[in-house]
């Protein structure tokens, strides 16, 4: 599938009815989701015939873009319901787990199951440090690679941590993440924040 077709398809993915600010629920746009998956697939071959998971999947747009078999996790049952509907709509076979990743759950029998993780975790603005908890967990669990979005302002910190964890971390692109005015405390119409698209590999 071509990039433009993928992006077009993703316009039909349903998003949060009522986003929850304490979970930092922001939608990954079809524009970003399509580029993330396209890169992971066409440049690194980390998607096809791989077991892929999404931590903090929200409404599941990254899943809808990657069309692969495995489970996605989120703490919000409302988001999972929408994600599940999206996957039915696109006839994707995906399992969802309701779980709290910040508690470092050990619900996996084997640690060698998941190959690739593609995620857009909370940025850790409202809940300090949650971004790094997601990233560390993902690096531990993925056999091949982790694709993730993080605030550019945290880049130095992440590069340092990646070294500690013994993984290579590459900044694949600097992106603008468009945060529309969707919560009450937002004063401006929409804000672009500078985000790094990262690939961490063992």
């Amino acid at each position: 599938m071509k990039l433009k077709e993928l992006e077009g398809l993703l316009q039909d993915v349903a998003v949060f009815d009522e986003p929850k600010i304490h979970l930092e629920q922001y939608v990954t746009t079809p524009h970003l989701a399509s580029r993330i998956l396209f890169t992971a697939h066409s440049v690194y071959d980390d998607i096809e015939n791989k077991i892929v998971a999404d931590f903090g999947c929200g409404c599941g747009i990254l899943r809808t873009a990657s069309h692969q078999i495995f489970s996605d996790q989120d703490i919000d049952p409302d988001a999972l319901r929408i994600a599940s509907d999206n996957c039915s709509k696109f006839e994707l076979s995906v399992d969802f787990l309701l779980t709290d990743l910040t508690l470092d759950p050990k619900w996996q029998k084997n640690d060698n199951i998941i190959d690739t993780i593609v995620m857009n975790p909370p940025f850790g603005t409202k809940n300090k440090g949650v971004d790094m908890i997601f990233l560390k967990k993902a690096v531990e669990v993925a056999n091949n690679a982790v694709y993730s979005l993080h605030k550019t302002s945290t880049r130095e910190h992440i590069l340092k941590k990646a070294k500690e964890w013994g993984v290579d971390c590459e900044v694949l692109a600097e992106l603008k993440f468009d945060i529309p005015n969707m919560y009450k405390f937002h004063r401006r119409k929409s804000v672009d924040i500078q985000v790094d698209f990262l690939r961490l590999a063992k």
């Binding site: 495995f70 399992d95 029998k109």
Partner: peptide, 23 residues
């Protein structure tokens, strides 16, 4: 949930780490 996912889920209650699979 498909059986493939059930096949890797174990109990993760604190301290419960033997005979905790399969559910």
């Amino acid at each position: 949930m498909r059986l493939v996912t059930h096949n890797l889920l174990q109990c993760h209650v604190k301290g419960c780490d033997t005979n905790n699979f399969p559910l």
